[in-house]
């Protein structure tokens, strides 16, 4: 267990649901925190009776959805005015994800909830380009529910020995991220060929 992850685990043991909500919300905002490991650990703590499994899942889902929606709403209404200069400067550089969002808003938002590191960026772009709020919220709820349900349940069933599987959690997360990047790259290459 790295010192970085250990700090977050102590934080969860001390402040329970508040800590989970804060870690998940910070991660949804922009910070690259080990959310999946924390949720698996929280699921394991629930199996030991230290936390409640339903509480952990609900807490994480609500914190993540609330943050995603706030970022989306903020970007939809204010980002262009505040970050006008930067948006113009960046224009064209994020075309791949922007084009995907315009064509497949639901699928892109849903998939990036599972491929964690991209979610904050997609929230930002979805708000700026004006993805329909209903589409964003439904995809956000489904994606987050699926991801947190999976990781918290995994921790619950691994129970006392969840620490033996931390490497596997990193591998699963990395595999999802790599698969998502490969899918995007394949789409871009195919588009260029066309």
């Amino acid at each position: 267990m790295t010192a970085f992850v250990s700090t977050f685990l102590s934080f969860v043991l001390l402040y329970k649901y508040w800590a989970i909500a804060l870690i998940v919300a910070s991660s949804a905002l922009i910070l690259p925190l080990p959310t999946n490991i924390v949720i698996v650990a929280a699921g394991a703590f629930a199996s030991q009776g230290y936390l409640n499994l339903t509480g952990v899942i609900a807490d994480a889902i609500i914190a993540n959805i609330a943050t995603d929606c706030i970022v989306f709403y903020f970007c939809r209404h204010y980002a262009e005015r505040i970050f006008d200069r930067w948006i113009k400067k960046w224009d064209g550089k994020f075309m791949a994800i922007e084009r995907r969002l315009r064509t497949y808003a639901f699928g892109t938002v849903f998939l990036t909830r599972i491929a964690g590191p991209f979610a904050p960026y997609v929230n930002f772009v979805a708000g700026i380009i004006g993805v329909r709020a209903a589409v964003f919220i439904v995809a956000d709820i489904l994606g987050n529910a699926l991801a947190f349900l999976f990781f918290a349940s995994a921790g619950y069933f691994l129970g006392n020995y969840w620490q033996d599987f931390t490497n596997d959690i990193w591998i699963i997360t990395a595999a999802v991220v790599v698969a998502f990047i490969a899918y995007l790259a394949w789409k871009i290459v195919r588009k260029r060929k066309d």
Binding site: V5, Q48, N160, Q163
Partner: peptide
């Protein structure tokens, strides 16, 4: 299972589990 005790655990958590 005593070997599972780690530095990130709180005393309260160790007492509990």
């Amino acid at each position: 299972d005593a070997v599972l005790v780690a530095s990130w655990m709180t005393f309260g958590y160790v007492n509990m589990i």
